[in-house]
Design a protein around this nucleic acid. Structure first.
Lengths: 331, 331
DNA sequence: TTGTATGCGTTATCAG
DNA sequence: CTGATAACGCATACAA
């Protein structure tokens, strides 16, 4: 008996196909006795629902599309883990798209993922192309944006203020008595730009901003780039005695470069990272960083899309951030 | 005109629906003139194929299922990136499952992913449950196993010898003159066990194996665990003057712990990691490691599943490994 | 609460 | 090379 279908199960249970369908999807629309019979028949036949047929008939899939900027960035794998966790309890699956920090690619991916309509969509940030917005509207699918805040999200948005978070990290360096603080940034996407703005704001408030203080690139962010950018920074801004880094990768690279150059951290030079990606807490010296609730963001986004009526949630949800002070800024 | 279908396109092109279908899927079954007309009509209408309908009718999807042991392990995100790259050119998508190093969970995931049948399946290692094997056989879907080697793969297998790779790393430590070499291992899955076997083999060949030399745990592998395990190792094996680590995370943790304890690397203590995850090349001192061709493995697995007849490929493909010597073992 | 009829958009099959 | 017709397995709308 190859691949039992609803009809096969129905025959075994002595009911109609639609009753089986209902017993599985909306158990309380079916009487207790029939529900029991149906479940029994399902077990007996080894029935597995055919997702394509279901999607075709209902014009909806049971999967949530998650389009992230980078699959090799641990920030987003943490988010994905959170999403997966939330979706699992609702019997939903996750369809991942890797947009490579490119809104056009995001659009292309969505175009291919939107037919038939998925159960929901999770997107990073608020920089969707106009075409993307139109598509999303046409399909009428619930959307959750993440990793940022906005007063007018497509659907809902859950994240934190990148500007405020970066300001807090920078302010911490100021409070520790560093006088010439620089900024390291790679992969300068919109949220990175916001962090740069937060950095500037903190220094301007402290009256310490110097135009030579930022070293950035649009190349991908990694440890090596952190070392490179630190070199660039100290050569263009020799008085520099601390850095706020856009990302923990860069902070580690900066730390290692300091080791190589014999610069003492935190005594001569302070380092603050961003995200709290784990390793910053273990290296020597350990690195101060701004922790972001990545997994929690993913989980909440997944949760919102799991429930039928997401009306219980605010349209903008700020999950905040927190400063994790460690050795690299404690002198 | 909401959601144009094949029929809509067919009307515009003045042909039948099935011709449109063919023009898109098997262009050379259709005359040049009609093919042109069809493509024109597709553009005009903005047609996007409905995957559910296609899957239902053909009983095959256009997506490749990839079940990996951990989504937060960069080893596997590198693999995924490779797979995605290969599939993109063949208009295939990737469906990811996160099995958490649990064959039973792998089985559950596959069960839900196998109806309707995907275009192909990629699995890590060779430790599938008997039920998984049976399911795979019933569905008759092409399977590629990765990250290991085996003479009797389910379908094809592309990877490298974990045993040989670990032996090479350990032998390198021997050759550098270290006399009391230990092993650090977390998340002791089957491939980790193979590496442990390779470690032992190298030391036995050198006549240096000591039963106190291994510190392992089944807890997840991360930098912190590397530090913990190093502590355990030196307390149970005080003469220890080098470690081969099952993973770069552990190697970094060991390195940082050496810093904290004032143990000089590489002078007093040698460290060799596994995988070459990038950061090992940037830290201070940089860490020797055994490089594994993760992305290439993913890419090749994706490629094999992209072509109709994968007969051009051997059933077992060994992509090898290579030792990357750095400062942590160079004295 | 349960069942009947019908259609979802595509592809397989078989004719022409 | 092209087309007509019939599935594919399930869910929606309505009826009972």
């Amino acid at each position: 008996m190859p691949k039992p279908t609803l009809v096969d199960v129905a025959k075994v249970a002595g009911v109609s196909a639609i009753t089986v369908s209902r017993a599985l999807r909306s158990p309380d629309m079916v009487s207790d006795s029939l529900r029991e019979k149906v479940h029994e028949a399902v077990r007996e036949t080894g029935y597995m629902p055919n997702k394509s047929a279901s999607a075709l008939a209902s014009n909806r899939t049971r999967s949530v599309v998650v389009v992230i900027p980078s699959i090799s960035n641990n920030v987003f794998t943490d988010v994905m883990a959170g999403v997966a966790e939330a979706l699992a309890t609702a019997q939903l699956t996750m369809q991942i798209g890797n947009a490579g920090y490119d809104p056009e690619e995001e659009e292309r991916l969505l175009r291919s993922f939107l037919n038939p309509a998925p159960h929901g969509v999770i997107l990073a940030g608020v920089e969707q192309t106009p075409e993307t917005l139109k598509m999303l509207e046409n399909v009428d699918v619930p959307v959750v944006q993440i990793m940022d805040l906005d007063d007018n999200p497509i659907g809902k948005i859950v994240g934190f203020s990148n500007t405020d978070a970066a300001e807090a990290g920078t302010r911490h360096l100021v409070e520790q008595g560093y006088k010439h603080i620089g900024f390291l940034g790679a992969q300068m996407d919109p949220r990175s730009q916001q962090r740069l703005a937060g950095f500037k704001r903190a220094l301007e408030k402290a009256g310490q901003f110097d135009p030579r203080s930022t070293a950035t690139t649009n190349l991908p962010s990694d440890v090596q780039m952190g070392a490179t950018l630190l070199g660039k920074l100290v050569s263009q801004y020799p008085e520099c005695d601390a850095v706020f880094c856009n990302n923990d990768d860069l902070a580690l690279g900066a730390l290692f470069e300091c080791h190589r150059r014999g610069i003492r951290v935190p005594l001569d030079f302070g380092i603050c990272g961003f995200n709290n990606l784990g390793i910053t807490g273990e290296c020597f010296p350990s690195v101060t960083t701004v922790e972001t609730p990545r997994k929690e963001i993913g989980r909440l986004a997944g949760q919102i899309l799991s429930v039928d009526a997401s009306e219980g949630y605010d349209k903008t949800i700020d999950l905040g951030y927190s400063l994790v002070q460690r050795e690299s800024t404690t002198r």
